[in-house]
Computed example of a mutant assay.
Amino acid sequence: MIKKITLLLFLCCTTVAFGQSPFSVNGLCIAAPSKVKVDDFVGFIEKDLAPGGINTLILRVDFNYAYESRPELRDDNPLSKADVKKLVAACKKHHINLIPQVNLLGHQSWHGDLGKLLEAYPQFDETPNVKLPENYEWPNPDRLYCKSYCPLHPQVHDVVFDIVDEIVEVFEAKAFHAGMDEVFYLAHPDCPRCQGKDPAKLYAGEINKINAHLQKGGTALWIWGDRLIDGKDSGIGMWEGSYNHTEPAIDLISKSVVICDWHYEKAIPTPAYFAMKGLQVIACPWRKPEVAEEQVAMIEAFKENSTPEMAEKYLGVMHTVWSPADAFLDNYYNPKSEDDPRGSEAACLKAMIAAVKKIKI
């Protein structure tokens, strides 16, 4: 309870300190830049994010860091400690809450390639009998989107918590984003430990285990919210919601977990669902400027028309970028047509920033 209050005070105080946003979170989530583009990204923070009122920056690091605790999990040419400290210094200067992300549980492969974790530790694979295809297509008979690690493997957390602790420390982070989205493989018949178990309990158990580990150091856990929504009854579908029965986990996870609620085609009002469950929530757009504007208006309306207890759960908005950071910067400064997916990401961020600035504090 004390840690939850501390997080709320931190979020509220940062809003006052910035003096630029009516929301506790006015954020951007993007992949960490490549090593050669770190200085360019620092310039982006200085010239655009800070003046735009962005007060929260999630960098998806995954294995793009020269881990010392687990060097076998380094990508080729990863960010060094010195590279990260440049980003940390820029964010500190502008009072931006810098949050690293490493995908846990799901997203341990992409198309025909394993991620570093399962490449180095194949014994952690939830679905060892599902082979990665040479030419990936969706849908496929194995229902393969991305591999997962087995949350019940007795050694998996020894490994992943090493890199979580290291990345939190080097980023001097008050929060950590664990991903946890689009988990299609869980309680799979291939897994001798998970088969036949309740997917919701497995999913909630993993969230709570990660959260308990982070809370030992006073670090907050953030995750994506899609697996906590019933994709069938809501009509939201299998990507923005769950078809594999993980959604009851919403009643089993710690209320201290912060939910990043992504919907990219329209401003679906699921933040109210999370807030009613006692969870802090952030609405997240991607590539449609009008959706970003609608989500800003939605969160503002929810805050204005809620009880104080509910209003504090609506933290704000966060734009998400899914192209590489280097490509995004190029498109941001050299705009493409909004009909081009690369250009629309930049237009969406600019629209979100402009919409938040129009709100009267």
Rank of each mutant, 00 (worst) to 15 (best):
R143L: 12
F63D: 15
M318Y: 02
K93H: 09
L329S: 08
I207G: 06
L104E: 03
N103C: 12
I167W: 00
E247W: 06
L214V: 00
I167F: 06
D326R: 15
P189V: 06
I99T: 10
G112M: 07
D83F: 04
P133D: 10
A50W: 01
L349I: 04
L279W: 01
Q108D: 06
Q295C: 03
I30Q: 04
L104Y: 03
Q215Y: 04
V102M: 11
E345P: 03
H245W: 02
V170H: 04
L132T: 09
F10E: 14
I236H: 03
E338Y: 09
W110H: 11
D261L: 04
H319F: 02
Y145W: 13
G343E: 04
V321N: 14
S21R: 13
E312R: 12
Y67I: 13
W262C: 13
D340L: 11
H111A: 11
E265R: 15
E119D: 13
F302Q: 10
E338I: 13
R287N: 14
A31Q: 08
N208Q: 07
I58R: 06
L98V: 05
C284Y: 08
A200F: 02
R60S: 01
W222P: 00
G241S: 07
E265L: 13
W262T: 11
P324M: 13
V159G: 00
K174Y: 01
D165G: 15
G218E: 10
N331Q: 09
G343R: 09
D125A: 12
Y67T: 14
S24T: 13
V160L: 13
R227L: 10
K201V: 03
A347P: 00
N26Y: 02
T6H: 08
V183L: 09
V25N: 10
H319E: 14
S337A: 15
L315C: 11
D198W: 05
H111R: 14
K255G: 05
M180R: 06
V61N: 05
L144Y: 05
V317L: 12
P71K: 01
Q215T: 06
P128E: 03
V160N: 08
N26H: 15
P269C: 05
M180W: 05
M180F: 10
V160T: 14
M1K: 09
C29I: 05
E134K: 15
R70P: 00
